[in-house]
């Protein structure tokens, strides 16, 4: 004789689900990892001097009291982005700013100006990390803006909206030439944080 199966009491289901929910809320994080992606130069024991024309280098220096110098001039951080953009693209063909070379790049019609400029970022051991990142951010922003301008001119879209091949072409036209110099002591109190 088949007996009807009694209904299972599901009243505590909500409690169980709440318990698991609270467990997940406690043990997991929601933060997405964001950061400034950079590539370090490979390590070499023997320092070989790479000859770069002097006018192609812009030294950006942050000293131990977080003061910024760009191209040997003291500068406010708000000015850095425009200064870097002007140095790299050199629209007025200034003899002290970077050399522009016209190059043909696959994927882009005609010859485009490619800058030979390099930004050399130097810091002191006493520089604060906050100031360092603020400057790094401005440098990256300058290059991103140049890439956006270039993309809009040649493809009619911003850089992030382009497909992979087009992005590669833009990257070749405007390389992100930020060089992180070898560390050196420039008269700072050595921080003992080891």
């Amino acid at each position: 004789m088949a007996r009807p199966v009694g209904e299972i009491n599901a009243g505590s289901m909500a409690d169980i689900a709440f318990l698991i929910l609270i467990y997940f809320l406690m043990t997991t994080t929601m933060d997405i990892d964001t950061g400034l992606a950079r590539r370090l130069p490979p390590y070499e024991d023997t320092q070989e001097k790479i000859e770069i024309n002097r006018r192609n280098i812009m030294v950006v220096l942050i000293n131990k009291s977080d003061r910024l110098f760009a191209g040997n001039q003291p500068m406010e951080i708000g000015m850095l982005r425009e200064t870097v953009k002007e140095f790299i693209m050199n629209p007025t063909d200034h003899p002290n700013k970077s050399v522009i070379e016209r190059k043909a790049i696959p994927g882009i019609r005609g010859e485009v100006p490619v800058s030979k400029g390099v930004i050399s970022l130097q810091n002191d051991r006493g520089t604060s990390y906050n100031a360092y990142i603020a400057v790094q951010n401005e440098l990256v922003a300058a290059f991103n803006e140049l890439r956006d301008d270039f993309s809009r001119m040649h493809f009619g879209k911003v850089y992030t909206a382009l497909d992979d091949d087009q992005q590669a072409a833009v990257r070749e036209a405007i390389p992100q030439t930020i060089s992180e110099a070898e560390p050196k002591e420039v008269g700072a109190a050595k921080s003992g944080g080891r």
């Binding site: 964001t34 400034l36 490979p42 390590y43 810091n123 051991r125 604060s128 921080s191 944080g193």
Partner: peptide
């Protein structure tokens, strides 16, 4: 941390270069 001095970060960067772990990201 934002208040850290660059000296220790520079040491880390040099060490990473020696291990050829060249792809880095400054978390921000």
């Amino acid at each position: 941390d934002r208040d850290v001095r660059m000296g220790i970060v520079t040491d880390i960067k040099q060490e990473l270069r020696r291990c050829s772990a060249l792809k880095i990201s400054y978390s921000s």
